[in-house]
Amino acid sequence: MLSKEKIDRINELSQKSKVSTLTEEEKREQKVLREEYISSVRKSLKNNLLSIKIVDEEGQDVTPIKLKHAKENRKKH
């Protein structure tokens, strides 16, 4: 996950853009920080999805094959 300082900076730039205009340097910084944040969220979501096991009412594993293969590939790396 992103550091608190980076998240605070994203929020600071966002607030500033609502009140006034960002400089070109600030716009670039904001873009980089947002991309880093989105990448972090996607990575976290992917890891969460790979930890899911789906079980039906009878206790049978019904996890989709595609998800099972992704889990196996992650274990190999």
Results as ranks from 00 to 15, higher is better:
V55C: 06
R28A: 07
K4C: 07
L22M: 04
E25A: 12
S20I: 15
L67G: 03
E29F: 07
I54T: 06
M1T: 11
D8F: 14
L45W: 10
D56K: 10
D61Y: 07
R42W: 08
E24D: 13
R28H: 10
E12Q: 10
S44D: 12
H77D: 12
I65A: 06
T21L: 05
Q60E: 04
K71L: 08
I65C: 03
E35I: 07
G59M: 08
A70Y: 15
V32M: 10
V32D: 01
V62K: 12
P64C: 12
S44C: 04
E24K: 14
E12Y: 09
K43A: 06
T21Q: 13
K75N: 05
I65N: 11
K31C: 01
G59V: 11
K75P: 00
I54K: 01
V62D: 07
T21N: 15
K4Q: 14
K31R: 03
V41Q: 11
K46E: 02
K6P: 00
S17M: 15
K43P: 05
K71M: 15
L67W: 13
A70H: 12
N48I: 13
S3Y: 08
V41R: 13
E57M: 06
L2I: 14
T21I: 05
E36G: 01
L13V: 04
N48C: 07
K16M: 07
E72M: 15
Q15R: 15
K31Y: 05
K75V: 11
S17Y: 11
L2E: 05
N47K: 13
K27D: 04
K76D: 13
L13G: 03
K71Y: 10
E57A: 08
E36N: 01
D61P: 14
T23A: 06
A70D: 15
E72S: 14
T23F: 02
L2P: 09
N73Y: 13
S44A: 03
K75M: 09
L45I: 04
R28Y: 11
E5T: 03
L33F: 11
Q30V: 02
N47Y: 08
G59I: 10
L50N: 06
K27T: 05
L33R: 01
Q60F: 10
K71T: 02
E12H: 11
E25R: 14
Q30T: 00
S3T: 09
L49Q: 13
E57Q: 03
S44P: 03
K16Q: 11
L13W: 12
K46Y: 09
E58Y: 09
D61V: 14
N11Y: 08
E12S: 06
R74V: 03
E36C: 01
K71Q: 15
K31I: 04
K16W: 10
K4S: 15
G59E: 03
I7H: 02
A70V: 00
K76R: 09
S20E: 12
R9C: 04
Q30S: 11
L67M: 14
H69N: 10
R74G: 01
L13C: 09
L49E: 06
K18Q: 15
E58A: 10
K16E: 02
E57N: 05
Q15H: 14
N48Q: 12
H77W: 03
T23M: 04
R28Q: 12
K68D: 08
L45Y: 09
D61K: 07
H69G: 00
K76H: 12
E5K: 13
L45G: 00
